[in-house]
Nucleic acid binder design. Structure first.
Lengths: 199, 199
DNA sequence: GAGTGTTGTGTACGGGCGTACATATCGGCG
DNA sequence: CGCCGATATGTACGCCCGTACACAACACTC
Protein backbone atom coordinates (compact mmCIF):
# COMPACT_ATOMS: atom_id res chain seq x y z
CA UNK A 1 0.00 0.00 0.00
CA UNK A 2 1.29 3.35 -0.95
CA UNK A 3 0.82 6.94 0.03
CA UNK A 4 0.11 7.19 3.72
CA UNK A 5 -0.36 10.11 6.01
CA UNK A 6 -1.89 12.50 3.60
CA UNK A 7 -3.19 15.32 5.73
CA UNK A 8 -4.96 17.00 2.81
CA UNK A 9 -6.71 13.85 1.82
CA UNK A 10 -10.00 14.97 3.26
CA UNK A 11 -9.84 18.30 1.51
CA UNK A 12 -9.00 16.71 -1.79
CA UNK A 13 -12.02 14.46 -1.46
CA UNK A 14 -14.26 17.48 -0.94
CA UNK A 15 -12.76 19.18 -3.98
CA UNK A 16 -13.32 16.03 -6.01
CA UNK A 17 -16.92 15.83 -4.82
CA UNK A 18 -17.53 19.38 -5.98
CA UNK A 19 -16.09 18.57 -9.38
CA UNK A 20 -18.24 15.46 -9.65
CA UNK A 21 -21.41 17.32 -8.72
CA UNK A 22 -20.51 20.07 -11.13
CA UNK A 23 -20.11 17.58 -13.93
CA UNK A 24 -22.77 14.98 -13.25
CA UNK A 25 -25.03 16.48 -10.64
CA UNK A 26 -25.81 15.17 -7.20
CA UNK A 27 -27.34 12.11 -8.79
CA UNK A 28 -23.89 11.19 -10.06
CA UNK A 29 -22.29 11.49 -6.67
CA UNK A 30 -21.22 8.28 -4.99
CA UNK A 31 -18.40 7.15 -2.79
CA UNK A 32 -16.93 5.45 -5.79
CA UNK A 33 -17.22 8.36 -8.18
CA UNK A 34 -15.49 10.76 -5.81
CA UNK A 35 -12.86 8.17 -5.05
CA UNK A 36 -12.09 7.89 -8.74
CA UNK A 37 -12.12 11.66 -9.21
CA UNK A 38 -9.85 12.26 -6.23
CA UNK A 39 -7.66 9.31 -7.18
CA UNK A 40 -7.99 7.68 -3.80
CA UNK A 41 -9.23 4.20 -2.96
CA UNK A 42 -12.89 3.62 -2.21
CA UNK A 43 -12.26 2.96 1.44
CA UNK A 44 -10.77 6.39 1.82
CA UNK A 45 -13.98 8.18 0.91
CA UNK A 46 -16.10 6.03 3.17
CA UNK A 47 -13.60 6.51 5.95
CA UNK A 48 -13.67 10.31 5.85
CA UNK A 49 -17.36 10.62 5.03
CA UNK A 50 -19.46 7.81 6.36
CA UNK A 51 -22.54 8.96 4.48
CA UNK A 52 -23.03 10.94 1.30
CA UNK A 53 -24.90 13.55 3.30
CA UNK A 54 -21.73 14.24 5.25
CA UNK A 55 -19.94 14.78 2.00
CA UNK A 56 -22.67 17.05 0.69
CA UNK A 57 -22.60 19.14 3.84
CA UNK A 58 -18.88 19.66 3.47
CA UNK A 59 -19.23 20.47 -0.21
CA UNK A 60 -22.06 22.95 0.34
CA UNK A 61 -20.16 24.64 3.12
CA UNK A 62 -17.12 24.99 0.92
CA UNK A 63 -19.14 26.34 -2.00
CA UNK A 64 -20.69 28.79 0.40
CA UNK A 65 -17.33 30.05 1.57
CA UNK A 66 -16.16 30.39 -1.99
CA UNK A 67 -19.20 32.42 -2.87
CA UNK A 68 -18.86 34.69 0.14
CA UNK A 69 -15.24 35.26 -0.74
CA UNK A 70 -16.13 36.09 -4.33
CA UNK A 71 -18.72 38.59 -3.20
CA UNK A 72 -16.33 40.15 -0.74
CA UNK A 73 -13.62 40.40 -3.38
CA UNK A 74 -15.93 42.25 -5.71
CA UNK A 75 -16.07 44.80 -2.98
CA UNK A 76 -19.13 46.71 -4.04
CA UNK A 77 -21.03 45.61 -1.01
CA UNK A 78 -18.56 46.96 1.47
CA UNK A 79 -18.66 50.45 0.03
CA UNK A 80 -21.75 52.12 1.46
CA UNK A 81 -21.92 54.61 -1.39
CA UNK A 82 -22.77 52.23 -4.21
CA UNK A 83 -26.31 51.92 -5.40
CA UNK A 84 -27.51 48.65 -3.98
CA UNK A 85 -29.82 47.58 -6.80
CA UNK A 86 -27.21 48.29 -9.45
CA UNK A 87 -24.56 46.49 -7.50
CA UNK A 88 -26.66 43.39 -6.93
CA UNK A 89 -27.89 43.24 -10.51
CA UNK A 90 -24.29 43.51 -11.64
CA UNK A 91 -23.23 40.81 -9.25
CA UNK A 92 -25.85 38.45 -10.61
CA UNK A 93 -24.87 39.32 -14.15
CA UNK A 94 -21.27 38.50 -13.47
CA UNK A 95 -22.30 35.33 -11.74
CA UNK A 96 -24.58 34.13 -14.49
CA UNK A 97 -22.36 35.19 -17.35
CA UNK A 98 -20.49 32.68 -19.41
CA UNK A 99 -20.04 29.22 -18.06
CA UNK A 100 -22.88 28.40 -15.75
CA UNK A 101 -21.35 25.30 -14.24
CA UNK A 102 -20.44 27.15 -11.09
CA UNK A 103 -23.87 28.63 -10.50
CA UNK A 104 -25.59 25.39 -11.29
CA UNK A 105 -23.39 23.60 -8.87
CA UNK A 106 -23.97 26.02 -6.05
CA UNK A 107 -27.70 26.12 -6.60
CA UNK A 108 -27.93 22.38 -6.86
CA UNK A 109 -26.23 21.95 -3.52
CA UNK A 110 -28.28 24.74 -2.02
CA UNK A 111 -31.57 23.36 -3.30
CA UNK A 112 -30.71 19.88 -2.18
CA UNK A 113 -31.60 21.09 1.30
CA UNK A 114 -35.23 20.80 0.25
CA UNK A 115 -35.09 17.06 0.75
CA UNK A 116 -32.08 16.65 3.00
CA UNK A 117 -32.59 18.03 6.48
CA UNK A 118 -28.86 17.68 7.13
CA UNK A 119 -28.21 20.44 4.62
CA UNK A 120 -30.80 22.85 5.90
CA UNK A 121 -28.69 24.50 8.59
CA UNK A 122 -25.96 25.11 6.06
CA UNK A 123 -28.40 26.52 3.54
CA UNK A 124 -29.85 28.74 6.26
CA UNK A 125 -26.38 29.98 7.12
CA UNK A 126 -25.83 30.91 3.53
CA UNK A 127 -29.01 32.95 3.29
CA UNK A 128 -28.32 34.62 6.60
CA UNK A 129 -24.77 35.43 5.69
CA UNK A 130 -25.80 37.13 2.49
CA UNK A 131 -28.62 38.95 4.27
CA UNK A 132 -26.16 40.12 6.90
CA UNK A 133 -23.92 41.53 4.20
CA UNK A 134 -26.85 43.42 2.73
CA UNK A 135 -27.86 44.66 6.14
CA UNK A 136 -25.00 47.12 6.00
CA UNK A 137 -26.98 48.93 3.34
CA UNK A 138 -30.56 48.47 4.32
CA UNK A 139 -32.85 47.14 7.02
CA UNK A 140 -33.01 43.42 7.78
CA UNK A 141 -36.46 42.90 6.33
CA UNK A 142 -35.43 44.39 3.03
CA UNK A 143 -32.24 42.38 3.09
CA UNK A 144 -34.17 39.15 3.40
CA UNK A 145 -36.47 40.21 0.61
CA UNK A 146 -33.54 41.01 -1.64
CA UNK A 147 -32.04 37.60 -1.05
CA UNK A 148 -35.36 35.98 -1.89
CA UNK A 149 -35.77 38.03 -5.03
CA UNK A 150 -32.24 37.32 -6.21
CA UNK A 151 -32.78 33.62 -5.65
CA UNK A 152 -36.01 33.77 -7.60
CA UNK A 153 -34.49 35.68 -10.50
CA UNK A 154 -31.51 33.34 -10.75
CA UNK A 155 -33.76 30.33 -10.65
CA UNK A 156 -35.96 31.64 -13.41
CA UNK A 157 -32.89 32.08 -15.55
CA UNK A 158 -31.49 28.67 -14.74
CA UNK A 159 -34.71 26.66 -14.78
CA UNK A 160 -36.24 28.08 -17.90
CA UNK A 161 -33.21 28.76 -20.07
CA UNK A 162 -34.08 32.43 -20.35
CA UNK A 163 -31.21 34.87 -20.78
CA UNK A 164 -30.43 37.10 -17.83
CA UNK A 165 -31.79 40.62 -18.15
CA UNK A 166 -29.76 42.92 -15.97
CA UNK A 167 -31.96 45.99 -16.48
CA UNK A 168 -35.00 44.06 -15.40
CA UNK A 169 -33.19 42.77 -12.34
CA UNK A 170 -31.99 46.22 -11.34
CA UNK A 171 -35.46 47.67 -11.77
CA UNK A 172 -37.27 45.16 -9.58
CA UNK A 173 -34.51 45.04 -6.98
CA UNK A 174 -34.77 48.80 -6.72
CA UNK A 175 -38.47 48.53 -6.10
CA UNK A 176 -37.91 46.35 -3.08
CA UNK A 177 -35.47 48.80 -1.55
CA UNK A 178 -37.33 51.48 0.36
CA UNK A 179 -36.37 55.07 -0.30
CA UNK A 180 -33.31 55.92 1.68
CA UNK A 181 -33.17 58.83 4.10
CA UNK A 182 -31.03 60.91 1.76
CA UNK A 183 -32.83 60.19 -1.46
CA UNK A 184 -36.51 60.68 -0.96
CA UNK A 185 -38.52 60.36 -4.14
CA UNK A 186 -41.54 61.86 -2.44
CA UNK A 187 -40.28 64.71 -0.30
CA UNK A 188 -43.51 65.29 1.59
CA UNK A 189 -43.35 61.92 3.22
CA UNK A 190 -40.20 60.63 4.79
CA UNK A 191 -40.80 56.91 4.36
CA UNK A 192 -43.87 55.20 3.20
CA UNK A 193 -44.68 52.00 4.97
CA UNK A 194 -41.61 49.94 5.40
CA UNK A 195 -39.88 49.83 8.66
CA UNK A 196 -36.37 50.83 9.25
CA UNK A 197 -36.62 49.64 12.78
CA UNK A 198 -39.08 46.89 12.21
CA UNK A 199 -38.10 43.25 11.92
CA UNK B 1 -51.15 -13.11 -17.29
CA UNK B 2 -53.94 -11.08 -15.89
CA UNK B 3 -55.39 -7.66 -16.37
CA UNK B 4 -55.02 -6.60 -19.95
CA UNK B 5 -56.17 -3.59 -21.85
CA UNK B 6 -56.15 -1.12 -19.04
CA UNK B 7 -56.59 2.25 -20.72
CA UNK B 8 -55.88 4.18 -17.53
CA UNK B 9 -52.71 2.30 -16.88
CA UNK B 10 -50.54 5.17 -18.00
CA UNK B 11 -52.36 7.66 -15.82
CA UNK B 12 -52.13 5.40 -12.82
CA UNK B 13 -48.40 5.12 -13.31
CA UNK B 14 -48.06 8.91 -13.30
CA UNK B 15 -50.12 9.15 -10.13
CA UNK B 16 -47.95 6.52 -8.52
CA UNK B 17 -44.81 8.37 -9.58
CA UNK B 18 -46.09 11.53 -7.91
CA UNK B 19 -46.78 9.63 -4.72
CA UNK B 20 -43.32 8.07 -4.78
CA UNK B 21 -41.59 11.41 -5.32
CA UNK B 22 -43.71 12.94 -2.58
CA UNK B 23 -42.66 10.25 -0.17
CA UNK B 24 -39.05 9.53 -1.10
CA UNK B 25 -38.00 12.31 -3.38
CA UNK B 26 -36.78 12.09 -6.94
CA UNK B 27 -33.82 10.07 -5.71
CA UNK B 28 -36.24 7.33 -4.71
CA UNK B 29 -37.91 7.23 -8.10
CA UNK B 30 -37.20 4.20 -10.24
CA UNK B 31 -39.10 2.11 -12.69
CA UNK B 32 -39.36 -0.50 -10.01
CA UNK B 33 -40.56 1.77 -7.23
CA UNK B 34 -43.36 3.22 -9.33
CA UNK B 35 -44.28 -0.21 -10.55
CA UNK B 36 -44.67 -1.37 -6.96
CA UNK B 37 -46.60 1.76 -6.01
CA UNK B 38 -48.95 1.50 -8.97
CA UNK B 39 -49.27 -2.24 -8.53
CA UNK B 40 -48.24 -3.00 -12.07
CA UNK B 41 -45.40 -5.16 -13.30
CA UNK B 42 -41.99 -3.66 -13.95
CA UNK B 43 -42.30 -4.06 -17.68
CA UNK B 44 -45.38 -1.90 -17.69
CA UNK B 45 -43.53 1.17 -16.40
CA UNK B 46 -40.68 0.76 -18.83
CA UNK B 47 -43.14 0.25 -21.64
CA UNK B 48 -45.07 3.47 -21.03
CA UNK B 49 -42.05 5.54 -20.02
CA UNK B 50 -38.85 4.43 -21.62
CA UNK B 51 -36.74 6.77 -19.48
CA UNK B 52 -37.25 8.25 -16.05
CA UNK B 53 -37.08 11.70 -17.59
CA UNK B 54 -40.22 10.91 -19.56
CA UNK B 55 -41.92 9.98 -16.33
CA UNK B 56 -40.72 13.13 -14.61
CA UNK B 57 -41.96 15.29 -17.44
CA UNK B 58 -45.41 13.75 -17.18
CA UNK B 59 -45.39 14.11 -13.40
CA UNK B 60 -44.28 17.74 -13.47
CA UNK B 61 -46.87 18.58 -16.08
CA UNK B 62 -49.57 17.00 -13.99
CA UNK B 63 -48.46 18.76 -10.81
CA UNK B 64 -48.47 21.99 -12.78
CA UNK B 65 -52.05 21.46 -13.91
CA UNK B 66 -53.10 20.65 -10.38
CA UNK B 67 -51.51 23.82 -9.10
CA UNK B 68 -53.09 25.99 -11.78
CA UNK B 69 -56.44 24.46 -10.97
CA UNK B 70 -55.98 25.12 -7.27
CA UNK B 71 -55.09 28.74 -7.92
CA UNK B 72 -58.02 29.18 -10.24
CA UNK B 73 -60.37 27.62 -7.72
CA UNK B 74 -59.29 30.03 -5.05
CA UNK B 75 -60.59 32.66 -7.41
CA UNK B 76 -58.88 35.67 -5.92
CA UNK B 77 -56.81 36.16 -9.00
CA UNK B 78 -59.72 36.36 -11.38
CA UNK B 79 -61.41 39.12 -9.43
CA UNK B 80 -59.72 42.37 -10.46
CA UNK B 81 -60.78 44.12 -7.28
CA UNK B 82 -58.67 42.18 -4.83
CA UNK B 83 -55.43 43.59 -3.56
CA UNK B 84 -52.75 41.66 -5.35
CA UNK B 85 -50.12 41.57 -2.64
CA UNK B 86 -52.61 40.46 -0.01
CA UNK B 87 -54.03 37.84 -2.30
CA UNK B 88 -50.64 36.39 -3.21
CA UNK B 89 -49.39 36.39 0.34
CA UNK B 90 -52.55 34.61 1.38
CA UNK B 91 -52.15 32.12 -1.42
CA UNK B 92 -48.66 31.29 -0.29
CA UNK B 93 -49.79 31.03 3.31
CA UNK B 94 -52.47 28.56 2.37
CA UNK B 95 -50.04 26.65 0.25
CA UNK B 96 -47.35 26.45 2.90
CA UNK B 97 -49.69 25.80 5.77
CA UNK B 98 -49.93 22.41 7.39
CA UNK B 99 -48.57 19.45 5.54
CA UNK B 100 -45.81 20.55 3.26
CA UNK B 101 -45.57 17.36 1.30
CA UNK B 102 -47.42 18.88 -1.62
CA UNK B 103 -45.28 22.00 -1.87
CA UNK B 104 -42.09 20.03 -1.45
CA UNK B 105 -43.14 17.71 -4.19
CA UNK B 106 -44.01 20.45 -6.63
CA UNK B 107 -40.84 22.37 -5.93
CA UNK B 108 -38.71 19.31 -6.17
CA UNK B 109 -40.07 18.52 -9.60
CA UNK B 110 -39.81 22.15 -10.63
CA UNK B 111 -36.24 22.52 -9.40
CA UNK B 112 -35.20 19.28 -11.04
CA UNK B 113 -35.22 21.25 -14.29
CA UNK B 114 -31.91 22.74 -13.14
CA UNK B 115 -30.12 19.56 -14.15
CA UNK B 116 -32.57 17.98 -16.55
CA UNK B 117 -32.97 19.90 -19.78
CA UNK B 118 -36.00 17.76 -20.64
CA UNK B 119 -37.89 19.40 -17.78
CA UNK B 120 -36.97 22.96 -18.61
CA UNK B 121 -39.72 23.64 -21.14
CA UNK B 122 -42.28 22.38 -18.67
CA UNK B 123 -40.84 24.49 -15.87
CA UNK B 124 -40.85 27.49 -18.18
CA UNK B 125 -44.49 26.86 -19.00
CA UNK B 126 -45.30 26.88 -15.34
CA UNK B 127 -43.63 30.20 -14.68
CA UNK B 128 -45.20 31.73 -17.75
CA UNK B 129 -48.62 30.45 -16.89
CA UNK B 130 -48.50 31.97 -13.44
CA UNK B 131 -47.08 35.21 -14.82
CA UNK B 132 -49.90 35.29 -17.37
CA UNK B 133 -52.43 34.94 -14.58
CA UNK B 134 -50.85 37.85 -12.75
CA UNK B 135 -50.75 39.90 -15.92
CA UNK B 136 -54.45 40.47 -15.56
CA UNK B 137 -53.60 42.65 -12.61
CA UNK B 138 -50.34 44.26 -13.49
CA UNK B 139 -47.79 44.70 -16.24
CA UNK B 140 -45.75 41.74 -17.51
CA UNK B 141 -42.47 42.87 -16.00
CA UNK B 142 -44.03 43.15 -12.57
CA UNK B 143 -45.73 39.81 -13.05
CA UNK B 144 -42.40 38.13 -13.73
CA UNK B 145 -40.89 39.81 -10.71
CA UNK B 146 -43.74 38.67 -8.49
CA UNK B 147 -43.29 35.10 -9.62
CA UNK B 148 -39.58 35.33 -8.87
CA UNK B 149 -40.16 36.84 -5.46
CA UNK B 150 -42.76 34.25 -4.55
CA UNK B 151 -40.41 31.48 -5.59
CA UNK B 152 -37.65 33.00 -3.50
CA UNK B 153 -39.82 33.43 -0.43
CA UNK B 154 -41.15 29.88 -0.63
CA UNK B 155 -37.68 28.51 -1.06
CA UNK B 156 -36.37 30.37 1.94
CA UNK B 157 -39.14 28.86 4.01
CA UNK B 158 -38.60 25.37 2.67
CA UNK B 159 -34.82 25.34 2.56
CA UNK B 160 -34.11 26.90 5.90
CA UNK B 161 -36.97 25.59 8.03
CA UNK B 162 -38.13 29.10 8.85
CA UNK B 163 -41.81 29.62 9.49
CA UNK B 164 -43.74 31.51 6.84
CA UNK B 165 -44.41 35.15 7.73
CA UNK B 166 -47.41 36.35 5.80
CA UNK B 167 -47.09 39.99 6.82
CA UNK B 168 -43.53 40.08 5.60
CA UNK B 169 -44.53 38.49 2.33
CA UNK B 170 -47.38 40.93 1.77
CA UNK B 171 -45.15 43.87 2.54
CA UNK B 172 -42.39 42.99 0.09
CA UNK B 173 -44.77 41.83 -2.61
CA UNK B 174 -46.50 45.19 -2.34
CA UNK B 175 -43.20 46.96 -2.84
CA UNK B 176 -42.69 45.24 -6.16
CA UNK B 177 -46.09 46.28 -7.45
CA UNK B 178 -45.89 49.77 -8.90
CA UNK B 179 -48.58 52.31 -8.11
CA UNK B 180 -51.54 51.90 -10.43
CA UNK B 181 -52.40 54.31 -13.26
CA UNK B 182 -54.80 56.22 -11.05
CA UNK B 183 -52.14 56.50 -8.42
CA UNK B 184 -49.26 58.28 -10.05
CA UNK B 185 -45.78 57.94 -8.52
CA UNK B 186 -45.70 61.16 -6.59
CA UNK B 187 -48.91 63.05 -6.70
CA UNK B 188 -50.59 64.50 -3.65
CA UNK B 189 -51.18 61.17 -2.08
CA UNK B 190 -53.80 58.92 -3.54
CA UNK B 191 -52.84 55.46 -2.53
CA UNK B 192 -49.34 54.14 -2.22
CA UNK B 193 -49.05 50.55 -3.23
CA UNK B 194 -52.29 48.71 -3.69
CA UNK B 195 -54.02 49.12 -7.00
CA UNK B 196 -57.73 49.16 -6.58
CA UNK B 197 -58.58 50.08 -10.13
CA UNK B 198 -55.39 48.81 -11.63
CA UNK B 199 -55.22 46.72 -14.80
C1' DG C 1 12.36 -0.28 19.65
C1' DA C 2 8.18 -2.35 21.26
C1' DG C 3 3.48 -1.26 21.98
C1' DT C 4 -0.66 1.18 20.67
C1' DG C 5 -4.16 3.66 18.49
C1' DT C 6 -5.34 6.37 14.53
C1' DT C 7 -5.47 6.46 9.74
C1' DG C 8 -5.60 4.32 5.33
C1' DT C 9 -6.52 0.20 2.14
C1' DG C 10 -8.32 -3.86 -0.44
C1' DT C 11 -11.94 -6.97 -1.15
C1' DA C 12 -16.13 -9.15 -0.96
C1' DC C 13 -21.31 -9.32 -0.21
C1' DG C 14 -26.03 -8.38 -0.99
C1' DG C 15 -29.16 -5.56 -3.21
C1' DG C 16 -31.28 -2.23 -6.40
C1' DC C 17 -30.94 -0.43 -10.75
C1' DG C 18 -31.83 0.21 -16.13
C1' DT C 19 -32.28 -2.52 -19.92
C1' DA C 20 -33.23 -6.16 -23.19
C1' DC C 21 -36.02 -9.53 -24.89
C1' DA C 22 -38.88 -13.64 -25.59
C1' DT C 23 -43.43 -14.40 -24.73
C1' DA C 24 -48.42 -13.67 -23.95
C1' DT C 25 -52.72 -11.24 -24.72
C1' DC C 26 -56.22 -8.98 -27.14
C1' DG C 27 -58.68 -5.28 -30.13
C1' DG C 28 -59.47 -4.51 -34.76
C1' DC C 29 -59.43 -5.49 -39.58
C1' DG C 30 -60.27 -8.15 -43.66
C1' DC D 1 -62.85 -16.75 -38.39
C1' DG D 2 -57.81 -15.81 -38.79
C1' DC D 3 -54.34 -12.85 -38.64
C1' DC D 4 -51.52 -8.81 -37.08
C1' DG D 5 -49.69 -5.24 -34.62
C1' DA D 6 -50.07 -2.74 -30.47
C1' DT D 7 -50.01 -3.55 -25.71
C1' DA D 8 -48.60 -5.93 -21.67
C1' DT D 9 -45.73 -9.22 -18.85
C1' DG D 10 -41.96 -11.99 -16.64
C1' DT D 11 -37.33 -12.95 -16.30
C1' DA D 12 -32.63 -12.60 -16.59
C1' DC D 13 -28.11 -9.99 -17.31
C1' DG D 14 -24.64 -6.91 -16.05
C1' DC D 15 -23.57 -2.79 -13.67
C1' DC D 16 -23.03 0.22 -9.82
C1' DC D 17 -24.10 1.06 -5.29
C1' DG D 18 -23.38 1.39 0.15
C1' DT D 19 -21.53 -1.20 3.61
C1' DA D 20 -18.68 -4.12 6.35
C1' DC D 21 -14.49 -5.72 7.83
C1' DA D 22 -9.92 -7.68 8.23
C1' DC D 23 -5.62 -6.00 7.58
C1' DA D 24 -1.48 -2.76 6.55
C1' DA D 25 1.10 1.34 7.54
C1' DC D 26 2.44 4.92 10.10
C1' DA D 27 3.01 8.52 14.32
C1' DC D 28 3.47 8.77 18.79
C1' DT D 29 4.56 7.45 23.54
C1' DC D 30 7.27 5.35 26.85
Amino acid sequence: MARRYDPERRQRIIDAAIRVVGRQGIAGLSHRSVAAEADVPLGSTTYHFATLDDLLVAALRQAEEGFAKAVATRGGLTDPHTDLATELAGLMGEWLAGDRTGVELEYELYLAALRRPALRPVAAEWAEELAALLSHHTDPLTARALVALMDGICLQVLLTDTPYDEDYAREVLARVIPPGPSARPCPKRPRQGPPGSDA
